[in-house]
């Protein structure tokens, strides 16, 4: 394994290994097995479908998005169904990842505002970061809560005439607030998962990360997976 992973990709043993998470495959480590990636991209696709069919209903400024989907009447039909499927995918993802996302003492430390600023300034000490850092776990629980808020308010807005007027009005407010926070969180999530941290996007597409990436971003997870001792500079 000198020049990197690609030569080994066709090896059936390697392909099988990619269905198991947290194993070393040559120069790379499997971070997200196929099931994780399928669930993640189902959630993402349905999120954007719901988003782009919902935004033109939210404001006429984005009315042009409705035309991409066949008009506002289509959006009015599509949005609730896309939203419902999004919620179901989110529920599957929640169950799938809950075990990995339990907050541990190092995560609570990570989540202190000063630490998060250090993280964004690339000055943080990540030595105790496991498979997911505190921010990733926070995002996980935030979007789970957000999805719950969206489905509850969304069901009321789907059938506004079946609920008391006050319920519809509060649902509108809740749906609005939740979706705004959701979009803010997703923008940050996409940024950190692509441009900000090279190699991360690859892990959600092909499933693997390089040893170097793992050692740098998630040292404790790297040690657990490889059995290597921590390095003291």
């Amino acid at each position: 394994m000198s020049s990197g992973a690609p030569s080994s990709l066709a090896d059936p043993a390697v392909l099988r290994a990619r269905r198991t998470e947290d194993v070393v495959v040559g120069d790379e480590i499997v971070r997200h097995r196929l099931a994780s990636r399928v669930i993640h991209w189902s959630v993402a696709l349905l999120f954007f479908l719901a988003l782009f069919s919902g935004l033109p209903i939210w404001t006429p400024v984005l009315g042009w998005m409705a035309h991409l989907l066949g008009g506002l009447n289509v959006c009015r039909w599509l949005h609730p169904w896309a939203g419902l499927l999004f919620f179901l995918a989110m529920a599957a993802m929640f169950v799938h990842w809950l075990g990995d996302m339990r907050l541990e003492p190092p995560d609570r430390e990570w989540l202190r505002p000063r630490k998060m600023v250090e993280y964004m300034k690339h000055e943080g000490d990540e030595a105790e970061v496991g498979k997911y850092n505190g921010g990733q776990k926070l995002f996980f629980f935030a979007v789970a809560l957000g999805a719950a808020g969206l489905i509850v308010s969304g069901l009321v807005l789907w059938f506004p005439l079946s609920f008391p007027r006050m319920a519809s009005e509060l649902a509108t407010l809740l749906h609005d607030l939740t979706f705004i926070l959701f979009v803010v969180a997703v923008v940050l999530h996409v940024y950190l998962g692509t441009a900000a941290e090279p190699g991360t996007f690859h892990s959600m597409v092909r499933g693997t990360v390089t040893r170097r990436w793992a050692r740098f971003h998630h040292p404790r997870w790297y040690r657990e997976v490889t059995g290597e001792r921590p390095r003291h500079p």
Partner: peptide, 14 residues
């Protein structure tokens, strides 16, 4: 903010 952060801070790499 994301675009600005990227321009100022750049990608996070070892």
């Amino acid at each position: 903010a994301a675009v600005g952060h990227f321009m100022y801070q750049g990608p996070k790499e070892p």
